[in-house]
C-alpha cells in the first residue's frame, strides 16, 4: 500500500506503515492521516512529533502503555492518559500515530 506525495511514490507495507523512515515528510504525514480519516490539528501533531522524538532517541516505536506514560511525564497528566490519546487517534494512538509519524508498527502489537 504505497503513498503518492508530490509526485513521488513512498513505499509502505500492506498495513500502511512506510518501509523506510527516511522517506517521511510533513506532507506524507498529511497524506497518511487522510487515509486514516484523521484531521490533523495541533494536538495530533504534538503526539506525532513526540513519537518521532521517542524513536530518534530509542530506535523503537513504544507500546501504547509506554507511550501514555512517557506523554504523561513530558506533557502532563491531562494528555498522558488513554482517553485523550484515543480521542485523537480512535484506532489506537500507538498504531495510528506511529503510522502517521513514519515509524514501524510498535513492538508487541499484533
Amino acid at each position: 500500500m504505497d503513498y503518492t506525495v508530490n509526485d513521488q511514490t513512498i513505499n509502505a507495507d500492506e498495513e500502511g506503515y512506510i518501509t523506510d523512515i527516511s522517506t517521511w515528510s510533513i506532507d506524507l504525514a498529511g497524506t497518511i492521516a487522510e487515509t486514516e480519516n484523521i484531521d490533523m490539528g495541533d494536538d495530533h501533531w504534538e503526539v506525532v512529533n513526540f513519537l518521532r522524538d521517542y524513536y530518534e532517541e530509542y530506535q523503537i516505536a513504544p507500546a501504547v502503555r509506554v507511550l501514555t506514560k512517557a506523554v504523561k511525564k513530558s506533557l502532563g497528566p491531562e494528555k498522558g492518559n488513554s482517553k485523550y490519546l484515543y480521542e485523537l487517534f480512535p484506532y489506537g494512538p500507538a498504531k495510528q500515530a506511529c503510522k502517521i509519524a513514519g515509524l514501524p508498527k510498535p513492538t508487541g502489537c499484533v
Binding site: 507500546a63 501514555t68 484515543y86 500507538a94 498504531k95
Partner: peptide, 8 residues
C-alpha cells in the same frame, strides 16, 4: 496490546 483501560 492496545488496552483502552490503563488496567494492570
Amino acid at each position: 496490546m492496545e488496552d483502552f483501560e490503563d488496567n494492570e
